[in-house]
Amino acid sequence: MDFTKLLELVVSASLINNFVFTRFLGLCIFFGVSKRMETAVGMSITFVSVMVISAAVSWLIFFGLMVPLDITFLRIVVFIGVVAALVQTADTIMKKTSPVLYHKLGIYLALITTNCIILAVPLINAGEGYSFIEALAFGLGSGLGFALALTIMASIREKLELADVPRPFRGLPIAFVVAGLIALAFTGFSGLITL
């Protein structure tokens, strides 16, 4: 197994081609739970776990079941099913183990199901024909990238709470401006690793 390739996959998916800042995917959770650091960290952990497991499970189903049966055209439906089942599991586990966080995350926990990143990763894994380990690395990198984006955003938004932002821009609008400016900064990474 080529270790450099795996490292490149993780770094590329998390930093250089960060899903939030370069492809603008997964924005609803990104803006929804980045108001407080606590929820952002909770969501990050949940998100990374769901991401890695769903990347693994959908890879197994895609290459173990769908490719031999020649039903790859069903992949979107199947992947959504896989993700939905995983999110429901996470939902149930979290309700039992951490009710406080469960209530803070609220609707956004269920919304992981329809998160674009979590669907994009299995689709890209299938499209690029990554090996199982590579698919895991890509899932991990994407999850970490989203977690990173979420934590940065939460730290900035908590700092902005004290700022005298003009009234029409308070809350979500200024968060969009921040996201745009971070994306501007991240363009510096462009052309760094081309996969």
């Binding site: 900035i156 700092k159 902005l160 004290l162 700022a163 005298d164 932002v165 003009p166 821009f169 200024i174 401006v177 921040v178 400016l181 900064a185």
Partner: peptide
């Protein structure tokens, strides 16, 4: 955009 929208001097992130 970068300074005044964020509340002026002392609040800009970038």
């Amino acid at each position: 955009i970068t300074k005044q929208l964020f509340g002026g001097l002392g609040y800009n992130i970038f």
